[in-house]
Design a protein around this nucleic acid. Structure first.
Lengths: 134, 134
DNA sequence: AATACAAATAATAATCATTACTATTTTGGA
DNA sequence: TCCAAAATAGTAATGATTATTATTTGTATT
């Protein structure tokens, strides 16, 4: 996975990272693609996927699997939790510090070794709550 | 999603549920298919997918999205946590009660309404630890 | 600045998991 | 037994992602 080859910069990869840093909604690969096309019209979708995988393999961005469907990407690599709205499917950050004690608690009765966890909250986002469309 | 149509029994669906109840490793749709074929040789993969979706929509089984790739299914519908091995990818149950306080903590600083969460632990399973293959 | 070579790209094809379609069969109540 | 709804097998289609390949680009070295 994470081969340690020498990276060479490309304006495509730079644009992908720069775009991700402006966003807090954890875009999918296709959302990144649609956005970068505005400035680099002939960028290939494969290039977007390859760079997103390369960057997350190297730990420069986070890959999130919130629904079973498409992965999302996050330029904020600090450990933090996420929320997904059951109605509109939007993904947001949750302002709750990483709970290390969960790893200790779980390890106590686990046969292998637990080193980390991912926590995904579910519910209804504020937008869906106000505009009652159900 | 969850249409409330009258169910009619089928030996295919019965076999799927019965099989899932014998397993604690949260099989994928294809694993279910491969197993059921042993007793119902001409079962269709589409039938397996349709029934797994139908059953999880009705809350009779759980659908798990542990890696970004393929969904897994669990006949144990009580809220509980899971573990995925970073080395072999196996999925196991974690013996830790559902932490309701996490939902309260997260809600305190959240704009919408959080009703539940999913928690996935990561690390190395005991099998990978003993057989050191790296 | 020119050279050289590895890395990156665009474009396309291929793969994998999953869903949709359709004609036929099965189920369970009238 | 009869019938309509539900379920099925088999197949085609979809959507997300990865692989392939010929060409282009970045950067270290002359």
């Amino acid at each position: 996975m994470a081969e340690l080859t020498t990276l060479k910069r490309s304006k495509q990869r730079d644009a992908i990272v720069a775009f991700l840093k402006t966003r807090k909604d954890h875009p999918t690969a296709d959302m990144v693609y649609q956005e970068i096309r505005q400035t680099i019209p002939n960028i290939s979708l494969g290039t977007v996927y390859r760079n997103l995988s390369l960057l997350s393999d190297r730990g420069e961005i986070l890959r999130l699997s919130c629904d079973g469907k498409t992965d999302r990407f996050d330029a904020d690599i600090r450990p933090h939790y996420h929320f997904i709205c059951k109605q509109c499917g939007c993904v947001q950050d949750v302002d709750l510090p990483y709970q290390e004690d969960l790893d200790h608690l779980a390890n106590a009765s686990f046969s292998g070794t637990i080193t980390a966890h991912e926590l995904l909250f579910q519910g209804i986002c504020s937008t869906c709550e106000s505009g009652s469309t159900h």
